[in-house]
Design a protein around this nucleic acid. Structure first.
Lengths: 204, 204
DNA sequence: GTTATTTTAGATCGATCGATATAAAACTGA
DNA sequence: TCAGTTTTATATCGATCGATCTAAAATAAC
């Protein structure tokens, strides 16, 4: 069986994830990673293959720890509207406390354009989040003072786009007002239904 | 006077801008830049100081060539609503043709968190765009079938956030439907007024 | 205890990073 | 024509990049 490992995989992956999250993929060196993980470079390569594979582990861990956790809470919410409101309350609070933004969105910008495999994973993950909003909107009963949704899928996409811009502005240093404005508009979108779609944009 | 320069500044800055736009700041090497600009590294350093200063020139050129041009067109539009619609029509078309996204948004993600001076410039530039939407909304006359705006500033911010998420998804490979959904919702926001803001998010 | 296997630690690989030193080349003004 | 000035091209600086090699350390199986 050989010599046992002196590190715990979840802990060192979390440490690596923090580095990628803060600095991005390119700007994080293997030595930065090894230092943050309290490992030597040789152990890192032995355990994870290379920098790219380690990043894959980190992205998976991020999705399980953060993104899917929030979606699961949304699915478990009794009232979909308050579920979405809680989602954004949590998102705004977390984004103000931690200015690194969202590893998934950061990677969509930096990694996806140059790595088709990661692009596919990121696209699928964004779709997972979108689907979470879709399921929440589906659960909404028709109410007299709410307009019927023109297209639940479109509304879910708009709520996802609110998440994205909120995360971008959070990383870029946007203040509380900006983040709350976006969060409020996303919640209002879910509450009121939306009237977008009546005017075509770019028919070609 | 000495030997005259054998390059034209606007042309080589545009070439450098394309590199930063495609690959980002960190992943673009000085050799990449020199090659794209058809200059030697020495000439590059002689003319622009260092990599960071060259990037500053590129960001300024981007703002003048792209961002401010669109805002100027919006200001010059006869009808503010069709001005905003044209803005997003142009944005969607450009984003589908060119998958690099927006250099300003890309830099907000990669550069702003680590460079306070660029963070300030980027924040001010985003504010410039927001102010363009603000001026357009201000020009809108009250109409019977449109709700009065609760807050023009908030609406302008939401339209800016639509621009941002549209640009992020464009760079990450989002399809036409996604981009058009966002563009439509932004135009609808301007057309209808918005009802966001009734529910407080994150009082603390 | 011995052997086999795996993980450690430290040194180091060639390549590339941003930046510069040196000197030839190309111009202006006298 | 020639001195003065600036830009050019080439070569290279020390540092760091991702990745690997060697060998010592630490375990399990026997």
């Amino acid at each position: 069986m050989g010599r046992p490992r002196s590190f715990e995989q979840p802990a060192v992956v979390a440490a690596a994830m923090d580095q990628f999250w803060s600095r991005g993929y390119e700007a994080t060196s293997v030595r930065d990673l090894a230092s943050a993980m309290s490992m030597t470079g040789a152990s890192l390569y032995n355990a994870f293959g290379d920098k790219r594979s380690l990043f894959r582990h980190c992205l998976d861990a991020y999705l399980d720890t953060y993104a899917r956790r929030r979606i699961a809470e949304l699915d478990a919410s009794e009232d979909p509207i308050s579920g979405i409101r809680n989602f954004f309350d949590d998102l705004v609070a977390a984004s103000l406390k931690d200015r690194r933004g969202c590893l998934l969105v950061n990677s969509a910008m930096e990694v996806a354009p140059w790595d088709p495999e990661f692009a596919e994973l990121i696209e699928a993950s964004l779709r997972e989040i979108e689907d979470g909003f879709y399921r929440a909107l589906e659960r909404l009963p028709a109410e007299p003072n709410r307009q019927p949704y023109q297209d639940i899928r479109t509304t879910a996409r708009l709520i996802l786009s609110a998440v994205i811009s909120l995360r971008v502005l959070a990383r870029a240093g946007g203040d509380r007002d900006r983040l709350c404005s976006i969060a409020r508009s996303a919640v209002a979108l879910a509450e009121d239904g939306h009237r977008a779609g009546s005017n075509t944009v770019i028919p070609d």
